[in-house]
Structure formats: structure tokens, C-alpha cells
């Protein structure tokens, strides 16, 4: 099995003593061509990994910004098959590791083995499935591992007593959800104490672009809502805008 490049990139970040920057956008929001351009712009502006949201009719774990993006992408005709084709085109231009954030029914309905084979063919190296907790991880584990795809585990502030158990069987990195936490530092410290894998925190950029010293303890940052909203507002100019945004966040993180 080839080594998963998510591990390689995060190991390199750690070796260089810097935090990974991982932007999230909803695939197909504005059309495939725009998503493709935004991915390339972000890859060229300091992103280390990219997470593409696969739109779903009922995204129960998402905030309104991402729910709306999901609706727009579905209205534009986005499909999983289309996202895989787009990934094929992206792979001709960049080798930045890409993960899909998606709901379990989309994988189940596509066919688990077929889904992970397509991931391998199109260079998707991880999936984040918010409605699949530790207790149900066997649903896709064998199929994902057979194709060398990481199924990423989530931990939240409500995971008290579960973090070590989850971290013990996690792959790639631990995705720490900090939504709703005023001061995520103590939660993130607790996650780091219980995990040997890198800890990636979902954080709003506004919290630290002006005060980089306030970046809480973690190995990387996942940006979602602010970026998704920026893309909506800047429509056709969004590749350039997303690139500038990622570059600005990267610069702020480098000041830390």
C-alpha cells in the first residue's frame, strides 16, 4: 500500500515546526469549474491540505453558512460522480492532498467499495464523515483501508471521556470541532494530551488573523464558514479572493 500523503504532509509541517492550514469549501458551489479554480488558487497560496464538502440534502451537523452552500451546490446539479471527475482534472494540475467531508448515506448509496476505489483513482486520500461516530466506524473501515483512504475521526467539547478511545483508533489526524467554544484552548490541550496524531482544529479566522499569538494549541487549522461565505459574496472573483484569504491566514500563522 502506498503511504497516504496526508500523513506525509502533516509530518513535514511538524518537522518544520509550523501549523498546517486546511481550507474547506463546498464542492460545486458556483459550479465545478469555479471549485476547481478555487482549489488551485488555495493550493498555490499556502494551503497544506484541502477539504471538499460533498453537498447533501440534509446536512444535520452543519451551520447555516455551509447548509446554504450545500443547497446552492445541489441546485447547480452537483453529484458525487461529477466531483470525482473534477478531482481527476484537479489531479492533472496539483498534488495537494484532498479530503471529502460528506454524510454516510452518500457513500453507502454509491456503494462502499466502489466509492473508495474511485477515491484511490481520483487522488482523494481522506474522508470526514460527521454522522459516523466511533461506535459505527466499522461501517466503512475495511473498504477505506483497502484503498489506503483515511477515515478521519472527530472529537468535540462533548467528547469527555472518549478522546483517548477515539484517538487510539484514528487515522491521519484528529479533527477537533470547536464550534460554540469561547476559549477552545483547554479543550484542545486535552485533545493533544490524549492523542499522538496531529490535532486539527476548526477555528474562525477572525479570531487570530489580527492577533496571531491567540492561535490555540493544535497542529493545524481548518477554515470553513468564513471562506464559504467569502466565496458566495465574491462569486466569479472567488478564486482570487480565496487565494488572498488563505495567503493572509498563512502569513498570520507564520507570525506566531
Amino acid at each position: 500500500m502506498t503511504k497516504n500523503r496526508i500523513d506525509a504532509v502533516l509530518a513535514q509541517c511538524r518537522a518544520e515546526g509550523r501549523k498546517a492550514l486546511i481550507p474547506y469549501i463546498t464542492a460545486g458551489d458556483g459550479g465545478y469549474a469555479l471549485t476547481e479554480e478555487i482549489v488551485l488558487a488555495m493550493a498555490g497560496s499556502g494551503a497544506d491540505l484541502i477539504v471538499l464538502g460533498v453537498p447533501f440534502s440534509d446536512p444535520i451537523a452543519e451551520a447555516p453558512t455551509v447548509q446554504k452552500a450545500s443547497e446552492r451546490a445541489l441546485a447547480a446539479g452537483t453529484t458525487l460522480a461529477g466531483i470525482f471527475e473534477m478531482m481527476g482534472r484537479i489531479r492533472e494540475k496539483t498534488d495537494i492532498p484532498v479530503l471529502l467531508m460528506m454524510y454516510l448515506n452518500t457513500i453507502f448509496r454509491f456503494g462502499k467499495e466502489r466509492f473508495f476505489s474511485r477515491c484511490r483513482e481520483c487522488g482523494v486520500e481522506g474522508v470526514i464523515v460527521p454522522d459516523m461516530p466511533f461506535e459505527e466506524k466499522e461501517e466503512i473501515r475495511a473498504e477505506a483501508e483497502a484503498c489506503g483512504v483515511h477515515s478521519i475521526s472527530l472529537v468535540t467539547a462533548a467528547s469527555a471521556g472518549r478522546i483517548r478511545m477515539i484517538a487510539g483508533e484514528a487515522r491521519g489526524f484528529l479533527y477537533a470541532v470547536t464550534a460554540g467554544l469561547e476559549k477552545p484552548s483547554s479543550f484542545l490541550e486535552q485533545v493533544q494530551e490524549n492523542a499522538s496524531l496531529p490535532v486539527i482544529a476548526e477555528l474562525p479566522a477572525s479570531d487570530f488573523t489580527h492577533a496571531p499569538e491567540q492561535i490555540p494549541p493544535c497542529d493545524g487549522i481548518l477554515l470553513s464558514n468564513a471562506l464559504v461565505e467569502l466565496i458566495r459574496q465574491s462569486s466569479a472573483d472567488s478564486p482570487a479572493a480565496a487565494g488572498r484569504f488563505v495567503k493572509a491566514v498563512r502569513a498570520a500563522m507564520n507570525l506566531q
Binding site: I60, P130, M132, E136, V155, T156, A158, S159, R162, I166
Partner: peptide
Amino acid sequence: GGQYVPETVMNAV
């Protein structure tokens, strides 16, 4: 059946 819910609610479940 099963428990296909976000991690956030697992402790509550």
C-alpha cells in the same frame, strides 16, 4: 438501526 449520529451527541445518547 444503529447510532449514526455526530460525535457531539454520542455521550448524550
